[in-house]
Computed example of a mutant assay.
Amino acid sequence: MKKIEAIIRPEMQNAVKSGLEAVGVVGLTIHEVQGRGAQKGLEFVNRAGKFRVDLLPKTLISIVVPDEEVDKVIDAIVQNARTGEPGDGKIFVMPAERAIRIRTGEEGDQAI
């Protein structure tokens, strides 16, 4: 099993969620977060001068899937989150050692 965490633009959340459903992923957790990447936020200029917003709103999607589904999940996220502009986000893949469904006690792939 792998845990996939995707940090995406908030406005792409519904598209990514639909793309994941299309490949059979329905279980996910979504968090509203703030962060920044290499661009270090955004700089704006107004009448009062320049100011920088260094933490931007982002959406963090967490999914645990069997090993054989990792590539199709990543493809679904990339296809539905990409705008081609800086700030599209990142995807991280980590091992998930164990999963247990609390209601039934099922473990492993059956629990996800």
Rank of each mutant, 00 (worst) to 15 (best):
K3G: 05
E5Y: 02
A6C: 02
A6Q: 01
A6G: 05
E11C: 05
N14W: 10
N14Y: 12
V16F: 00
V16M: 06
S18W: 02
S18F: 04
G19E: 06
L20W: 00
E21S: 13
E21P: 00
E21C: 03
A22R: 12
V23D: 00
V23C: 02
G24H: 01
G24E: 00
G24C: 01
G24Q: 01
G24L: 01
V25C: 04
V25M: 04
V25E: 02
G27R: 07
G27Q: 04
L28H: 04
L28R: 12
I30F: 01
H31G: 07
H31S: 14
E32M: 11
V33N: 11
Q34R: 15
G35S: 08
R36K: 14
R36A: 10
G37Q: 08
A38I: 09
A38Q: 10
Q39W: 05
L42H: 11
F44L: 14
F44H: 15
F44G: 07
V45L: 14
V45P: 01
A48Y: 11
A48H: 12
G49P: 07
K50W: 06
F51N: 07
F51Q: 08
D54S: 14
D54M: 09
L55D: 04
L55F: 07
L56D: 10
L56A: 06
P57F: 10
K58F: 00
T59H: 12
L60H: 11
L60Q: 13
L60K: 15
I61L: 13
S62L: 08
I63Q: 02
V64T: 09
V64R: 03
V64A: 14
V64Y: 03
V65I: 10
P66H: 10
D67H: 09
D67Y: 07
E69R: 11
D71T: 10
D71C: 03
K72P: 05
I74P: 00
D75E: 13
V78L: 14
V78G: 06
Q79D: 15
Q79L: 08
N80C: 11
A81S: 15
R82C: 01
G84W: 13
G84E: 13
E85K: 15
P86G: 03
P86C: 05
P86T: 08
G87F: 02
D88F: 02
D88T: 03
G89H: 01
K90A: 09
K90L: 08
I91D: 07
I91A: 09
I91S: 11
F92M: 13
F92T: 13
A96N: 11
E97F: 07
E97A: 14
R98S: 07
A99W: 00
R101W: 06
I102N: 10
I102M: 12
R103D: 09
E106N: 08
G108I: 10
Q110H: 11
A111H: 12
